[in-house]
């Protein structure tokens, strides 16, 4: 899970995605509130993103108060981002579905790296990020990550104000 993965995304690239994204379909969002996917989703929801749970196995109708969809193809509108919390073997098939619905960004969570997915997303002109977490990236640029003593690697002479303040 270490970030020492030799994958670099320019700060501006990630910031642009985080600022323009309004809705995020989270594939594999757990119905249990102590799971990492739930931690990330709750945080992002609190920062104003519309969260759309995609979970084929839960019998819950809603997660974090949002209607649950069984698959990406069932979604009733196109989310700006599809964020994957899935098993490694399933990455490519979900990425293909996400490309089919023409989402703007495909994001693979920490621990998930897949070069083939990156290639097909790039050639479909869709933003692609892997082995990162949008919550942690958001917190990196808002300054909140530093509150937890985590090295954000950000140096800036600007005042930081949080979106929801």
């Amino acid at each position: 899970m270490s970030l020492k993965d030799n994958i670099y995304y320019a700060d501006d690239y990630i910031k642009e995605i985080l600022f323009t994204t309004k809705s995020i379909a989270i594939v594999g969002l757990s119905d249990k509130e102590n799971r990492p996917s739930s931690f990330a989703a709750k945080y992002l929801k609190n920062r104003g993103y519309k969260i759309i749970p995609v979970n084929p196995v839960t019998d819950k109708k809603t997660i974090l108060g949002e209607k649950v969809y069984k698959s990406i193809s069932e979604l009733e509108f196109i989310p700006d981002m599809v964020d994957l919390f899935v098993k490694k073997e399933k990455i490519l098939s979900f990425v293909k579905e996400a490309i089919k619905i023409k989402t703007k960004t495909i994001w693979l969570q920490l621990g998930l790296i897949d070069k083939e997915s990156e290639k097909i997303a790039n050639s479909a002109n869709i933003n692609f990020i892997m082995n990162r977490c949008p919550k942690i990236e958001y917190a990196k640029f808002s300054g909140e990550l530093g509150w937890a003593g985590v090295n954000s690697n950000v140096i800036s002479n600007k005042r930081k104000l949080l979106k929801n303040d």
Binding site: G143, N157, K158
Partner: peptide, 9 residues
């Protein structure tokens, strides 16, 4: 000098 610090918002 700079890491971790930013102008107070």
């Amino acid at each position: 000098i700079h890491s971790g610090a930013a102008p107070e918002p």
